[in-house]
Structure formats: C-alpha cells, structure tokens
Amino acid sequence: MADRTKEIMEVLRLFEESDFTTMQLELDGMQLALSKDGGSLPQFQRVQHMPPASAQVPVTASSRAQPATPAKGVNGNGAGAVQALAVSPTKTASKVAGEGLIAVKSPTPGTFYRAPSPGEPPFIEVGGKVSKNDTVCLIECMKLFNTIGAECDGTIASIEVENAQPVELGQVLVYIRPS
C-alpha cells in the first residue's frame, strides 16, 4: 500500500504541474478522478455495473485516495468487458431474470437512448405495457440509430441502462415480464 500511495502522490504532482484541469485514471482495480481550477470532475464510463458511491474519489493535495471496488476483467479491455457482462449482469437483473423475465439485449455496441430525440418522452417506463416489436429504445452505432423492439407482449419490469450511456454487444437493456 505504501508503494501505491507513493504512486498516487507522483500522479498528483504531475497533474498539478500540467495544463490539464481534469484527469481520470483506472489502474489495477483503482479509479482516480481529479479536478482543479474549476474543471468539472470527470465521470467514469461504467462498463460494468458497479456501486457508484465509491467510483469517484475527489482528491485534494492532502487527502488519500481509496481504492474503489475492484472491477474484475473490465479494466479498459473491451473483450473482457463483454465477457464480464455476459457472466454477471447487474444484481437486480440476475435476481429478476430468475423469475421468468425476458431480456432485450443490444444487437450491437453503441449508445443507449430512451427517447426518439432529446426533450421527447421516453419510449417506455417501468410498469408500462408493451406489445411485441414496440420500440423500447434506440441504440446509436456509428451515427446510425437502430430501433430496438420488445421481444414479447408484456410489462416493462426494469430498464437496465441509464439514458445516453454506452452499451456493449449482448448487454441487457430492458427486462419484460411477459403477459
């Protein structure tokens, strides 16, 4: 741990001397977010669902960085991320999946959108009814918008991704309770 503290102090020193106003670092299961001179604190791209509380550690010159929750196999490695997601989706997801829910998965990597365009109401809300092939969301991939349809008639049990967040191939987007 002493080595790690030394490394962090070195990073802080370099950051302080640089022209940058924000910085984020992911290393061996640790995530570090820094800002100075009014730069806004960077948001981590959550490749895997992990507890958000410890994901960001604001650091001042005197504070110590705590290692965040280790993220196994997802450190900037895309292939690893897909694997990790396939093995362990979110806690709620694995729980509800056992209850006969149908998963709507992303056919491509991209960005998840809940509404047809900003300012418009979302396609679906939790608890809302859908018919098979009703649009539940959009996935933007390489500037093309793919409409994603419901797999079956039913009720939306959960929405697994925040609006405008990146998703991986095969990631669960929505769970539907079939009717």
Partner: peptide, 9 residues
C-alpha cells in the same frame, strides 16, 4: 485497433 461505435464507419 478497436473501432469505437461512437463515430462514423
């Protein structure tokens, strides 16, 4: 090289 999904093709 990993082609990201965010930009044009």
């Amino acid at each position: 090289y990993r082609i990201p999904p965010y930009y044009d093709s």
